[in-house]
Write a protein that binds this DNA or RNA. Structure first.
Lengths: 207, 207
DNA sequence: CATGAGTTCCTAACGATGTTAGGAACTTAG
DNA sequence: CTAAGTTCCTAACATCGTTAGGAACTCATG
């Protein structure tokens, strides 16, 4: 309950605090990258930022909260990564493929991030409602793109996400560094669109 | 190095031992079902079979070895579950759909088992080479079925497994008890076969 | 400047985890 | 009967997330 109504929460102390939080999260990602996302230990993390484990509790309520913050970062990064393509209209076969390729790129760029965000690889963890709503919004975006492509059947949407998540996790667990996935992605998109009869590859303009 | 060359390892003691091992594994599955596959604790497991934790080490070298034994059990159960359909020739669109439905049934019957076998949901665990080879054999079976259906392109095989694993994990995490997946499965199989041009739905017998 | 609140850090500790050491009681083979 | 092998135990170690309680610091107000 400080009386800081004047400057909008940018006191010199708050700045330092935000820097420390960022530093902790950076270290957490690095540690997750080397030890595995589920093997993040507070003592190791604290050591990496020059602290003891209990001091982390000045910045996060629990280990869970750290995972949650990482989850949010991931969602923000995803939104940024997809910004260009997610609003482009009209939707064409090519723009859809480009979007899918961007999504794949994002997932492959950091398998650990992918595991945290989409694979529920951390045993006790599920994102808080606020963080999860971010994810829902992103998913709604993807759904809207497909809707604008003329795909309306809910079952088809299920099929679409199943196809993409299947391809992604298969690629990540089998061949994270391979680069021959682009063709498979395009083929999948074609298969799906042909099946549901959307965005025909022939120029389908009515005269 | 006992001199038991006569009776093929069926001494009254070995029997008791095998019973105990089975009992431990049963309790492990039950515990995994209630606590989550990754939250299996040796002390809880021991309590459930009327022991203390260290006594489990007379039967398994480590917690990892218990997971490995569970993995093997899962593979054996899968083989048994799929036995009817995996050898049926010639492969038809219907038999393929039946096989896929069996697979789905198996996965949904025990989400915990699915997570252990296919989702790598236990942080430190990966199956031993011997156990893994079992899984490889099962996978080869599935591949052979597809090959006999006329699907030879390796990329198409990737697409097939991606589609199925995507559908499975999506179903399990979103709606484990729902029963409207059968239609989606059939639709997926049709989409795939149409795309690769195998097993045409018209009676394709040459006159 | 001085005082008091708020923050950031620490050490010590609790209960839980997987695992090892060492020993007692039992089963079995010679 | 005796010696080996097994099955169980308690005690303990290092690790984990987390809490309690206190020392040192920053900072706004008298």
């Amino acid at each position: 309950m400080t009386t800081s109504v004047s400057t909008s929460t940018t006191t010199p102390r708050d700045r330092r605090r935000r820097e420390t939080i960022a530093e902790i999260l950076d270290a957490a990602w690095e540690l997750a990258r080397t030890e595995g996302i589920a093997s993040l230990s507070l003592r190791q993390l604290a050591k990496r930022v020059g602290m003891r484990a209990p001091s982390l509790y000045s910045y996060f309520d629990s280990k869970h909260a750290i995972y949650d913050a990482m989850f949010r970062q991931g969602q923000e990064q995803l939104a940024e990564h997809m910004a260009d393509v997610s609003e482009k209209r009209p939707v064409t076969r090519e723009s859809l493929k480009a979007g899918v390729r961007l999504w794949f790129e994002f997932c492959l760029a950091s398998p650990v991030r992918y595991q945290l965000m989409f694979q529920r690889s951390v045993p006790g963890f599920e994102p808080s409602p606020e963080s999860y709503s971010l994810a829902q919004a992103r998913l709604a975006d993807a759904g809207r793109v497909l809707l604008d492509a003329g795909v309306t059947d809910p079952a088809a949407l299920d099929l679409w996400t199943a196809l993409l998540t299947g391809l992604t996790s298969q690629q990540i667990s089998n061949d994270p560094t391979g680069d021959r996935w682009a063709r498979l992605l395009d083929e999948s998109v074609d298969m799906f669109l042909d099946h549901v009869g959307a965005l025909p590859t022939q120029t389908g303009d009515a005269p």
